[in-house]
Design a protein around this nucleic acid. Structure first.
Length: 419
DNA sequence: CCTCCACAGGAAGCGCAGGAGT
DNA sequence: ACTCCTGCGCTTCCTGTGGAGG
């Protein structure tokens, strides 16, 4: 790929700009180690997906039914984030649509992210809107939109609907029931649903009928191990970085970190991207272990920032209380002779939280709900808790902040605009 | 041993906002 | 536009657990 041309022509240069230094001068002159930065962002779907061939084969063999004008079974895919679920599905869909349009077979693919379209009605609207772009369906009843969809299939069209983050759909039972029942009535054409979820428990919440129809074929994507991540990163590095600008040990380290955390290809890619940016910023000309280590901190902070900012206000206040107590406590006497610092009792945090929330916000949640918040915060990995075992009064939870208390405190201060 | 304290976490129910049906 | 319904965040109430103290 060629470098994007920035020669917009003289007409962009005003008289004053000609004389003084343009702010982009230094940016443009800066040497970069990237060939194309976009190829190493998590948004990019690579053409080759290593270690996922069996899944690609499986999905394509199920979907190949549509090429013969037959109804395809539904597929349900689950696995943790960054295991390639979405990439694999998008890849197969792309290939299917390319093939079918070349052979003039009427197949339509629809990708819906259920985080944005989280109800049966919204999903139906989204899908139908893509089939009939010139018509507007907002305001029509669900039944009408639904009929429209079936009509489209009745003409002999095969529809493949991909529902990403399917666990976000509130009335999924009805949606799947409706689609599959409609599918049974169709003489020609068909509707196939591919559900994607990263919540492994989610399936158990479904109605048994929904479960059996949605899970005709069930695929579980395992996390990548360190070795696999190395290969993935190597492949991406070749695309995104100039040759010889990324040391092998940097790739190994990034893979090891990501594998240890979760086996998440997304974090691995983010690590390398940020490391590359750091190297560029310093004008180092290449990425080594040092930059990956710094990138690790940065990526962690980005993840925490995203997490904290999406938390409910009261929960942020709980976290804030933990952070400020942890700061106060540091020089204080050690609890029960332990040398570890920053360990707090559940009770004292609740007291602190009550004070703070009364001061800044009108409302305060009850102790029960506060405990719920605490368990959630632990699930997110923002705090660590242990049950008080021997020696400490009664039954309580010992709570410790997962990250730097000072940073956490100032982050929430900004987020809630309190002082 | 019993009782009290300080908490964990389940179950039920309440009020509210937003969507569906009429 | 109207009521009805439902999911969600939260409170209330409750039972269970284990050390402290009489």
């Amino acid at each position: 790929m060629e470098l994007p041309a920035i020669d917009m022509g003289e007409n962009f240069l005003s008289e004053s700009a000609r004389a003084s230094e343009n702010i982009f001068d230094s940016q443009f002159a800066r040497e970069t180690i990237f060939i194309d930065r976009n190829l190493i962002t998590p948004h990019y779907t690579p053409r080759v997906l290593p270690f996922r061939e069996p899944y690609i084969t499986k999905i394509s063999s199920v979907l190949s039914q549509t090429l013969h004008g037959k109804k395809a079974d539904n597929i349900f895919i689950y696995g943790k984030t960054g295991t390639g679920k979405t990439s694999v599905t998008k890849h197969v869909m792309q290939q299917l649509l390319e093939f079918s349009s070349a052979k003039n077979i009427p197949i339509t693919g629809n990708y819906v992210n259920c985080r944005n379209h989280n109800s049966k009605y919204r999903i139906l609207i989204k899908v139908v809107k893509e089939l009939f772009p010139e018509e507007n369906f907002l305001g029509f009843s669900a039944a009408f939109v639904y009929e429209k969809l079936l009509d489209y299939a009745r003409k002999g069209n095969q529809l493949v609907i991909v529902l990403d983050e399917i666990d976000k759909v509130k009335d999924l039972d009805e949606l799947v029931y409706g689609l599959t029942r409609g599918n049974d009535e169709l003489e020609k054409g068909g509707i196939c649903v591919i559900g994607i979820s990263n919540n492994l428990m989610f399936k158990d919440r479904l109605d048994p009928r929904t479960k059996s129809s949605l899970c005709d074929h069930e695929l579980i994507f395992p996390p990548y191990n360190a070795q696999e991540l190395v290969e993935i990163l190597e492949q991406r590095t070749k695309l995104a970085f100039k040759p010889g600008t990324v040391e092998n040990s940097a790739i190994n380290l990034a893979s090891a970190i990501a594998a240890q955390e979760s086996g998440d290809a997304r974090t691995a890619v983010m690590l390398l991207l940020r490391a590359g940016e750091i190297a560029d910023h310093k004008g180092l000309g290449k990425v080594s272990d040092e930059e990956v280590k710094k990138a690790k901190k940065q990526v962690e902070e980005e993840i925490i920032f995203n997490m904290v900012s999406t938390l409910p206000e009261q929960q942020q206040l709980v976290l804030f209380s933990i952070a400020s107590l942890a700061l106060e406590k540091k020089p204080m006497q050690k609890i029960t002779g332990e040398t570890e610092e920053g360990i707090l009792f559940s009770g004292e945090i609740y007291d602190e939280y009550c004070k703070i929330s009364k001061k800044f916000k009108e409302t305060t949640v009850t102790a029960r709900w506060y405990r719920q918040y605490i368990s959630e915060l632990e699930m997110y990995g923002l705090i660590y808790t242990t049950n008080s075992g021997k020696g400490i009064k009664g039954q309580t939870r010992l709570i410790k902040l997962g990250y730097d208390a000072g940073k956490m405190k100032s982050l929430i201060e900004k987020e809630l605009s309190i002082a």
